[in-house]
Design a protein around this nucleic acid. Sequence first.
DNA 1: CTAGAGGGTCACGTTAGCGTGAGGGTCAAT
DNA 2: ATTGACCCTCACGCTAACGTGACCCTCTAG
Lengths: 112, 112
Amino acid sequence: MLIGELSERTGVSRRALRYYEEQGLLVPERACNGYRVYSGDAPLIVAQIQGLYAAGLDSDAIRQYLPCARGRTPDLEMCAELRTHLSGRAAELGTQAETLIRQREAILAHLS
Amino acid sequence: MLIGELSERTGVSRRALRYYEEQGLLVPERACNGYRVYSGDAPLIVAQIQGLYAAGLDSDAIRQYLPCARGRTPDLEMCAELRTHLSGRAAELGTQAETLIRQREAILAHLS
DNA sequence: CTAGAGGGTCACGTTAGCGTGAGGGTCAAT
DNA sequence: ATTGACCCTCACGCTAACGTGACCCTCTAG
């Protein structure tokens, strides 16, 4: 499929899809006229990318993570390292949430 | 105290402290020579600001939140609104963490 | 053959939270 | 009076993930 169709099907802008290619996250084939041609599993990959961005990962982390998540490159060491990475990031988010909850409790105290 | 001392005591750069003033988060008095003069509770406020930045809030949210957190402006409506804001943000962080944990589980599945 | 829909590559604009000089007063001490 | 430690105000630089034209090509339909 071409970039317009992928954009419509995923809700991700054409600009963003080109950006993903720039970052090496989702690199499509090229037709003889230079048009980007995406394979059938592209929408799934785009969804994964969006989820990871939304979770606060940056392009570098996602680039390293994606091939492993797709079952490619069964490099056990890399996958283990990435699991550690994700666990650490999740822990960070947990402490951030705790900070906010504490502040909320502080306000509750002020209100009494 | 002057900006240098506050910077040392908090570990926050002078540039950042001037930025906080720009954003209306921590506005010091001025000596006759134009030097910024911070009050005794400034280090505590700086710590709060840092915590909220670290938790992912932006300057606007912190500006609205700080007076309430310090016990100033006992505006009950505003405080309630801010509690809602913080709860929402904490929930967002929770879902982000869940996303990462799911991805980690997906990798675990690949490894088997 | 001409119009329109869609595709391509630059390349600058945006937001946030500072970093990093440039150029220049202020203050205490020697 | 000169040094050195601080202070001030611009004001440009940086990173990230795109938005938004500008300008040109390609394909299909009437």
